[in-house]
Structures are given as structure tokens and as C-alpha cells.
Design a protein around this nucleic acid. Structure first.
Lengths: 243, 243
DNA sequence: GCTAAAAACTGGTCATACCAATATTCCAGG
DNA sequence: CCTGGAATATTGGTATGACCAGTTTTTAGC
């Protein structure tokens, strides 16, 4: 008996205006680069006050749909990249210190995944992990490191928890991580010759899971991610030197 | 050689307010669920007019960082609410078996919180935990168990991690948990006389954190949540008999 | 002590005025 | 006729102030 009733909330009239203008833009009646009627004009047309129109336009501007210039007017932007990022992303991108927090949360989730996976992984799933490690070894011999394989390895572990929600949550965090720093991190690995160590880490994690040793798997995962965290911090301070 | 010159734009003061509040949220000075000062108050604090504050809040609301209710106030949302809670809610509602998964994810997050809190909790935060346990003891003497105090205890631990993202993620999961099963679980406790055991659990967790013993704190939290998980499973099978 | 009325916030809307930046118009000088 | 620049109109940005409509808190009465 949860949430049977919808949360009745009086819709603000500024929201109504927002949806109307969004429709106009998506229908092409307001084309990119075109001028939106002035705030006073809109207020008159819609029969509302200017502040209401103004709030609507602020929201549209925050969504990246329009752009206002004082004295100039309000213009429709190309909606090629008008996707409003989710709250977490917008904060992490702006504040590098958040990356450290993010890495830490990921650490908690992944160690937990390793722990659960060691309890429940099927033989088939363990075999998948084994193959991924073998693939890593093959690439490592050439001095290469494929972030794609790395990601698939961690994903496979969480799959082996047989917990849909864990998979979903970790996937969300992992996605953020990937879009923000993964690339730089991979380059860093290759340059600094950490590949052997990384390979060893992954092999140990795989073996602890295969041995059905939850605590060992968690420990191995923790050590691996501690390295990642430290290197990331190093990357951060390097970047600060540039700016 | 494009865009050598930056587009000179006079920064709107509402944008300035937006960034200020974003910083407060990302630094954890404004925690999820907390009230942000009223519009009039903010206007006075910042020395600007209310419309400016209002526009800033509209933008923040559009970004999903805060939520305003007329007459109520403006509240900080969990950053992961839109990305995690909504999809997960639909999952859990369709498949009650998911509750078990949800409890397990919470277990992973909370054990991690306990681990981190034992490393970083300030003396003041430890004192808060101690007071909460004392309050539990007082109520337990009358054979009562207050879910509110329980929740605040766990919340305080995650606050002591000093990790904003961990706080937001756990808050989202916790919220899901609360709306689905928390009430039934509390009744269950009271009937079955588990209160003494619960009290002991919480005291141990608090003591391990106070002793700066990360592994011990994690272990204590794990044992506590294992009990919760088992009792929940018991509840589920009972409910199945009814349906 | 508990309940219900009332008072005090708080966000939502509106009206108005003025400022600052930009567009537009228009006129004088080439 | 064109051209440059000043005067003018338009537009978004900010500030006051007022009132309404829900919430929350306090208070008064039973």
C-alpha cells in the first residue's frame, strides 16, 4: 500500500508556459536562431504577468533550449545538444573534488559486488571472468590496456551478484565515472607502466571469486580500487599544475 | 581557430546564486531532504531582491537539485533520485522479490558507510551517535522502538563519512526502503521482542566507530543488517500466506 | 492533555517602476 | 545617394511591494 495516491501538486503557471514553448520548439514553429517574442509580448499573449513568463524563460535557458541577451532578446538555440544532464553529473563535472567522492562510492559498491559474486557466481560466470583476464594478459604482452575489457570485467562481477538493483545502481555510478575520467586514467596507466600490476590485481580478484572466498575477493577488489583512487588523485594534482 | 574570443556575457546575479547553492549542496552543507532558507531570507542574506532568488531557485528546480512546495518551503533533493529512485521504484513495485535485492544493496552501502565513518567521524559526530543510542535505550526500557530514531542513527553514520555522494545515494535507497517495508518491519520488531538485540547491535556499531575500528564497524553493521534481512524474508513469506 | 481555531511563515502570482544593454530609426554631412 | 553617428525605442535584468494560497506552528479553549 504505497503511493496509491498521486502527489497532487498545483501546477505552476510558469511550468505551463515552459511546456507550451517546448511544444512550439519541437514542432518547429520556433526554429533555431529565431527570436522568441519578448517577455512583455508573451505576457500579454498568454494573459499572465511578466514575472511568470520570465521564470519560464529562465527554466528554458537552464535546459539549454533558449538563450537570452539583455537588450537583444531571447533566441532559440540549436537543440542538437539540449539534453539536460542529471543532477549528479552537473555537480561532478563542475567540482573535481566530487570525483574523489564518486570514486569512493564506487569502491564501496564494487567491493560489495565482489563479496556477493564470490558467494553466488555460477561456473559459467566464473569462466567468463577467466576469459576476460586471459584477454587482458594477451593485450598486456603488447603493453596495451583496453578500458573496454576492464569495464566488462567489472560489469561481469556485478552481474554475478545476481542482484538486479545492485547492477543498476553500480551501472549508474560507473557510467558517470566513465564519462568523466576513465579515458584520462587509461592513458595514465599505459604511460606509467602500471599494466603488470593491474593485470595481477584482476587475476587475484578473479581467483578469489573462483575460490568462493568472499572476504578475499572483497579485499582484492579494495586493494585494486585503492590504486585507482590514488592514481586519480595524482592526476588531479597534475591538472592543477596546468591551470 | 574558432572561438578565440570568449562571449562576453554579463553574469546574471541569479546565476551567481545558482552556483553558490550548488556548491553548498556538493559540499554537503545542504544535505538531502534539508530545507534551504526561505526566499525572503536568502534575499536578505545575499542582499538581492526576491525575484532574483526566485529565478535561481526555479533553475535549480529545473535541474532537479531542489524541490519547492507552496507554503512548505524548498528542499534539497537526493541527487540520485531522478536517476535511481524512479526506475527502481517501478522495478520494486512490479516484483516484490526485488525488496530482497534492495535490502542487499542497502547492506553494501551501509557497511561501507560504517567503515568510512570509523575512519573519519569527528568527536562531535560520535557524540551524536552516542546520544541516539542513549535515546534508544530509554525507549527500549518501555518496550518501544522508534523507527524515526533508528533512521536518524543510520543517517548520522553516513553523514560521518563526509562523502556527499555516498550520502545522496544511500538516502535514495533508504527512501525506497522506507516507503515499502519499514513500517511493517518496526511492528514486527515490537511484537517479536527483538528490541534488546537491536539495541545491542546499535550500541556495538557506535562503539566500533568511536574506537576508530573500520573493520569492526563494518562487521557490526553487517551483522545488524543480516538480522534485518532475515526478518524481512520471514515477513515476506508471511505475506505470501495472506495473498 | 488534547483538539481545533488562529496566527505566522512560505512559495506563487501580479503590477509597476527603473536600469542597462542592444536594435532601430533618422538626420546631418560627405 | 550613401554614410556615420546620435537620438530613440525596444528588450532583458533588477528591485519593491502587495496580495493570494497552501503549510506549519502556535495558541486558546474545552
Amino acid at each position: 500500500m504505497t503511493n496509491v495516491f498521486k502527489p497532487i501538486r498545483p501546477k505552476k503557471i510558469s511550468e505551463e508556459i515552459v511546456t507550451q514553448i517546448k511544444v512550439l520548439i519541437s514542432e518547429g514553429q520556433l526554429k533555431p536562431g529565431e527570436r522568441v517574442p519578448s517577455e512583455r509580448e508573451l505576457a500579454a499573449l498568454l494573459g499572465v504577468s511578466r514575472p511568470s513568463v520570465r521564470e519560464a524563460i529562465m527554466v528554458l535557458e537552464a535546459m539549454g533550449l533558449v538563450e537570452s541577451r539583455q537588450g537583444g532578446g531571447t533566441f532559440v538555440r540549436s537543440l542538437t545538444e539540449s539534453t539536460l544532464a542529471d543532477p549528479l553529473t552537473s555537480l561532478v563535472e563542475k567540482n573535481p573534488r566530487m570525483l574523489h567522492h564518486l570514486a569512493e562510492v564506487r569502491m564501496g559498491l564494487e567491493t560489495w559486488s565482489a563479496y556477493l559474486a564470490a558467494q553466488r557466481a555460477t561456473d559459467e560466470e566464473i569462466e567468463t571472468l577467466r576469459k576476460l583476464v586471459a584477454e587482458m594478459e594477451r593485450q598486456a604482452e603488447d603493453g596495451g590496456w583496453d578500458a573496454e575489457i576492464d569495464t566488462r570485467f567489472h560489469y561481469a562481477i556485478t552481474t554475478a551478484t545476481h542482484n538486479t538493483i545492485q547492477l543498476h545502481v553500480l551501472n549508474t555510478i560507473q557510467g558517470l565515472f566513465h564519462t568523466t575520467i576513465m579515458v584520462a586514467l587509461t592513458e595514465f596507466y599505459q604511460k606509467e607502466g602500471y599494466i603488470k600490476m593491474l593485470l595481477e590485481h584482476h587475476r587475484t580478484i578473479m581467483e578469489r571469486i573462483a575460490a568462493r572466498d568472499p572476504d578475499g575477493a572483497r579485499q582484492a577488489m579494495a586493494e585494486h580500487l585503492e590504486l585507482v583512487r590514488d592514481k586519480m588523485q595524482q592526476l588531479e594534482s597534475d591538472n592543477q599544475l596546468l591551470s
